[in-house]
């Protein structure tokens, strides 16, 4: 079996598992909605207009926490023995790639939910939806790539939520800062892709580098 085939099988397995445990996906979707609702009710106290910067920060922080919670379970939802069994069947690269692909899909879904709920409840300062969609898409991919690897590391250390957070927050900062900057561009209706091309390339390069790093480092991690 080549790598692409292995990844396809493993992603199909992830989807099947998710389908059998629908409450997990529902749970994380509810997590997004509840978070936004808490923000909405908290902000509504003074009936003040939400500043663009605040909206931006709240949106990405919500996504960050959602991503950490959604991806933390990547390597622990199945027991050790079963993971060991996969490792005997598949190459480690296929395992990490499949997790990243699956988590990327999950993150895109969750980002879409978050964006929809944010827009409905808190309005949206976005002026250039084309740019913002690309930013959100690449941001979601970046989150899922980085957190998949971190969750693999945290899983080795008992995978408590604290560890997942403290390991991921400092390394996710460059990503977040680029995303915040890019989103600010997307708030301006006159913005074009030319204005943000430099930052978009940086973001793409960061995403690609995260994949490459995980691809190289993961094989060292799983061998027990």
């Amino acid at each position: 079996m080549n790598l692409a085939q292995e990844v396809r099988y493993l992603v199909a397995k992830e989807l099947l598992l998710e389908w059998r445990q629908k409450y997990a996906l529902g749970g994380i979707a509810l997590y997004v909605v509840s978070t936004v609702f808490v923000i909405y009710t908290s902000l509504n106290q003074g009936n003040e207009e939400l500043a663009k910067t605040t909206w931006n920060v709240l949106f990405w922080i919500t996504l960050l926490f959602t991503a950490v919670n959604a991806i933390a379970k990547s390597f622990t939802q199945e027991n050790r023995e079963r993971n060991l069994y996969y490792y005997t069947l598949m190459s480690p690269q296929a395992v990490i790639l499949s997790k990243m692909v699956y988590n990327a899909g999950l993150m895109i879904l969750l980002t879409a939910i978050a964006l929809a709920v944010f827009t409905v409840m808190l309005g949206s300062p976005v002026g250039q939806w084309a740019i913002f969609s690309v930013v959100v898409l690449l941001g979601g991919l970046g989150f899922s790539f980085l957190l998949s690897m971190i969750s693999a590391i945290a899983a080795k250390a008992g995978n408590n939520a604290t560890l997942m957070a403290i390991l991921s927050f400092p390394v996710i900062l460059p990503l977040i800062l680029i995303l915040l900057k890019l989103s600010r561009f997307a708030f301006v209706a006159e913005a074009t892709f030319e204005d943000v091309s430099g930052l978009l390339v940086t973001l793409l390069a960061l995403d690609a580098m995260l994949v490459a790093l995980s691809f190289i480092l993961f094989p060292y991690l799983w061998r027990d």
């Binding site: 590391i153 400092p170 800062l177 680029i178 060292y220």
Partner: peptide
Amino acid sequence: AKVSAVYGIFAFIIYIIFIFVLPRL
């Protein structure tokens, strides 16, 4: 040793990117 080495490499590379990319932002 193994897990912390993996995290050490991962974090260092991202950290280097951080201190070289961020000042440009």
